[in-house]
Design a protein around this nucleic acid. Structure first.
Lengths: 213, 213, 213, 213
DNA sequence: GATGAATGAGCGTTCATTCAT
DNA sequence: AATGAATGAACGCTCATTCAT
């Protein structure tokens, strides 16, 4: 491994270290109450160091979502490309992909949903903004293509597939935020999962073409 | 009308005047970039005066949603209590109630969804917190009772009606936030409406019992 | 006196209070080492208050010079308009005007010269910038008109009067900065005065038309 | 050439390389907006390396002037020592020496004038401080000796020659700073030259003894 | 009740400087 | 000698909140 490679790897490691610290602080203090100093302390770094790896606070926040978005895109892409799946199975795969996303890192998913709901994106560099947008776009695109297939086969309601994708995502992120808002009230875990199951059951049934009996 | 009554009425008027000013500023500057001073200027009052009517900034923000929550609760209550409606019609009425909510004041609905997604509620007085919670609870309760009816009649899937209510609300608020996040990208209006139509179509079909054909 | 008048007067008083505090701190710590906090402490105000009266640090610094520039302009205007003065007497009046300027407030004059020599002006509001520029322009204009008279009467060298004005001002401000730079070395006061006397003597003799004997 | 000599030469080379880079950055970004990192980048060195060659930022800034001061001193010394020159010719030679200084490197001359006008000198090592002071002193000394000659011959006004030297230098540096402050307003070049011509013409005429006709 | 000047803790950010490699 | 990541004190500035009038 060359020197350059190691440097790049070290750099990425530090970024991940900072991101990991951010998550921990977010969890304990809440996103809006977390300061750069808090994160620096948690990461056992100085505030200045954070600015070597992230252009500013908003970019740090936004960067937290990149990984998750990449994962999301990859998962949906995989579902889309898997052969020999019925449309039912495909919807089910989407459900499992989103479940998995949530299980890997619920906090980051909340953060991603927050991002969508805040004005953070308006304060980041065009490059990062474009990256986030592109990843979101591609994920929705993958989702919409799954619906397109089903529509073409006559299995799904003939509705704008992109809108179907948006509806599914809204339902998912809406539930994630809902759970987050309930966190302080009710610390029972595993609340999201059963509700998501029901949500997907309904969505899956509803998107199917044919009159319900 | 007694003096006290008039005083209360005046007080309420001022509150509404401040709330109205807040809305206007939020619309033009965005929520996170709006300061108390901005609102005071817009209301042609001094910052100090705002603190006579609202305990602090978060309470002001939270108060914005009270009216909307009351309206929401009332609408859903009405749907629940209307006699001689089929379950299909009832779902349709819920849809129209939420549409109406959005049309009356899209910004406040966004604010309500934000509220749910932010940490604002953690900084308000227990009284206001309880009020908001109670109104939310009641709205969801009304919604869940609508589902209970349908389930009892065998028209709806036999799932936990409160969870069904949460799913429906999550879908709705998720779409509202989604639209908000797209506002800077795409200024086309009336984007939410058609997507909500599809969302409700799918939900309505999905929640119906019976195998899809 | 109306309420508004008093408010305006109070506002101006506060500004002068802050400016006075700035001067004291500048004298003891040096301009470049003075922070907003230092000035606030000296003025027995909070840092935030300074920002009510001055848009930012650079504007505060630049504002220090406004008064001096106004005084300068007025003095030169007066010299220009005084009747029945020989050109020798007029040059002498200019000398006395600049002497006086220095004696009123040497520190502010140094500050004015610094301003010219720094990049502070690049960071202030266009309005203040224009005000400073306009006052400078007018002062130089007045000076140049004094020279124009002398040239027309054949008493002064026929050179571009604006350039003559610039030369005189450069000589003056150059000496002021020179003295400032010597302050740490040599605390003897009254060093500038005799040197300025010589400078004006030479300038006065040099600008006169006619071959020196 | 011994090893030590080469090492010294290499060291000096590096210093000059860094100084050259500083100049380029100052020109493009302005002195106050230039950071050590900027200079390091421009010099294709690391920030740490700069600290091997310069004790701190102020020393780097101050060092920029050393060369110019040496050149200035040399030039004035030469003028002083040149035989068979009339006093008029000697003043003219001083003018040409300063012109030349400006033409070689206007930016460094500005920097030298800034140095005099700032508090940089208060933060440097006593050695460097002494060196700069000594060079300044010697230059002024040379200048004053030129005046002494003229005074002794009865050609110049019998004034303190050191003060005459200071007046001449103040006029010169005042004009240099004046031009610098006009740079952003008026990009016409060659503005300084004609004004300096007039300045020297006036100084030359003014310093001459004898009543003007 | 209404004011709005004043507050000041706290923020994000910078950058000269250091030091382990 | 050269590096450059890391430092962390210090900065300018904001703004929710208070309180004397």
């Amino acid at each position: 491994m060359g020197i350059q490679t190691r440097q790049l790897r070290d750099r990425e490691r530090r970024r991940q270290q900072i991101i990991a610290a951010s998550k921990r602080v977010f969890t304990s203090k809440g996103v809006s109450r977390t300061t750069i100093k808090d994160i620096a302390d948690e990461a056992e770094l100085s505030p200045g160091t954070l600015y070597i790896y992230f252009k500013n606070k908003d970019e740090l926040y936004a960067s937290l979502s990149i990984r998750m978005l990449k994962h999301l895109h990859l998962s949906l892409q995989r579902v889309k490309e898997t052969k020999d799946l019925s449309d039912d199975q495909r919807i089910d795969s989407v459900k499992r992909a989103l479940f998995e996303l949530y299980e890997i890192d619920p906090l980051m998913l909340i953060n991603l949903s927050h991002l969508q709901a805040s004005e953070t994106l308006e304060n980041i560099s065009p490059e990062l903004y474009e990256q986030i947008l592109e990843l979101s776009r591609r994920s929705l695109q993958a989702l919409s293509e799954i619906f397109t297939k089903g529509i073409e086969l006559g299995n799904f309601l003939n509705r704008n597939p992109m809108q179907l994708a948006v509806v599914l995502w809204a339902m998912f992120s809406g539930l994630v935020l809902w759970e987050e808002s309930k966190r302080s009230l009710d610390t029972r875990k595993n609340f999201l999962k059963p509700t998501l199951e029901i949500a997907f059951e309904i969505f899956g049934r509803g998107v199917k073409s044919g009159k319900p009996v």
